[in-house]
Simulated assay, not measured.
Amino acid sequence: MNSLFIVTFTLFNAVTFGYSSELDYDGWLQIRLYHALNDDPIPYFTERGNITVTSIRTGAPTLAQMGLQPSQIANLETLAHRGTNYRLKAVIRSSSGTESTFLTSVPACHLLGTDLEDILTVWLDLAAEPVAINQISPGPCTLSKTSTNMWTTSIQIRYPDGGPTPDTASYIYKLEKEKEARERGEVKDNRSFLAKYWMYIVPALIFVVLTSAANPDAAAGGGNGGQRQ
């Protein structure tokens, strides 16, 4: 196995390890939640609570959320009767020091149907930085009064799906074997003349064109040599 295969295989493994180390990186997230219980085009956000994810690999959260006041429950019921959404804002700070703000929403009637139960999914990129947050509530949709004023929240941490990894090492090995077989004459080269020797033909054509362009007088003189004075 020659040095080209060894170097390429080493680089491929290094890149793969780099992505794996980012995916396996264990950091933390601090999430500040704010919600809007009004139905205006511009939401009026008030504080809902804080969530700390101590390990993004395990997704273990620590939640500290405030219960809804009677007036807030009444506003949530108004949103449900109007068929509108409960809006949530999340300000997420990661262990790298970056801070991002995300918006999400869920039908208000679903929160009434589950007695203020919701699921927050935080999506991270390959560098373990938050890129989105989604709120869902399983429902069912109902207009009945909630039996509690306390939130029941679950946190999920998700990475993007990487998809299948190409078998680059095997492909390079196959190319090397075919090259060695051609050099030993075991594989017949069925390429055309131009396909085999284009790297020699093209420079020759370029040289001819450049030579002709550099001597226009000689070409003109040759054309007038047959004219009678």
Rank of each mutant, 00 (worst) to 15 (best):
G49M: 11
L111E: 01
M66A: 14
L29Y: 01
R93E: 13
V122Y: 09
S21N: 09
I133A: 06
N75F: 03
Y44W: 05
P70W: 06
T52L: 12
R57C: 05
A90K: 01
G113L: 06
P130K: 08
E77F: 04
L120P: 05
P140V: 06
V53Q: 05
A60W: 14
M66V: 12
H35W: 15
N134M: 11
T98N: 14
L68H: 02
R82T: 08
W123T: 10
G97D: 11
R82Y: 12
R87Q: 07
I136R: 06
K89I: 06
S137L: 03
F102R: 03
V122M: 03
A64S: 15
K89V: 09
Q69I: 10
S94T: 15
S94Y: 09
A108N: 01
P61A: 08
I92M: 05
A127R: 11
S20P: 02
S71P: 04
T62H: 13
E77M: 14
D26T: 15
C109P: 00
I92V: 15
E99Y: 04
Y34N: 10
L126I: 12
L103A: 00
D115W: 04
Q69L: 14
T62W: 07
S71T: 13
Q135K: 08
N85A: 05
L88I: 07
L37E: 00
A60R: 15
L143T: 11
R32H: 08
Q65C: 09
L29R: 03
R82L: 14
L76H: 06
I73W: 00
L37V: 07
E117M: 07
Y44Q: 10
Q72A: 06
E117V: 02
A74W: 07
A60Y: 14
Q69F: 13
E99C: 14
V91G: 00
T58Q: 13
S96D: 13
T98P: 02
I56R: 02
M66G: 09
I92F: 07
P70G: 07
Y86D: 01
I56Q: 04
G113V: 08
L68Y: 06
E117H: 07
A74E: 13
A60D: 14
L76K: 04
I73P: 01
H110L: 14
I31R: 01
A108Y: 01
D24T: 12
S95F: 14
A36G: 06
S96K: 13
E117R: 10
E47T: 14
V131R: 08
P61H: 05
L116F: 08
T52G: 03
D40G: 08
I136N: 03
M66H: 07
A80H: 03
A64L: 14
V53G: 04
T98Y: 13
I56Y: 05
A36M: 02
T142L: 05
G113T: 07
I56N: 00
L103S: 01
S96A: 14
E129H: 11
G27S: 13
V122F: 13
N85E: 00
P41L: 09
S100D: 10
M66I: 12
L112N: 07
G113M: 06
T84R: 06
K89N: 05
L76E: 04
H110M: 10
R57S: 09
I119F: 08
A64M: 11
A128S: 15
N50R: 09
Q135T: 05
R32S: 09
L79W: 00
V122Q: 00
I73S: 01
T84W: 02
D118H: 06
S20H: 12
I136K: 03
V106L: 05
Y34I: 00
G27E: 08
T54D: 10
D24C: 11
H81M: 13
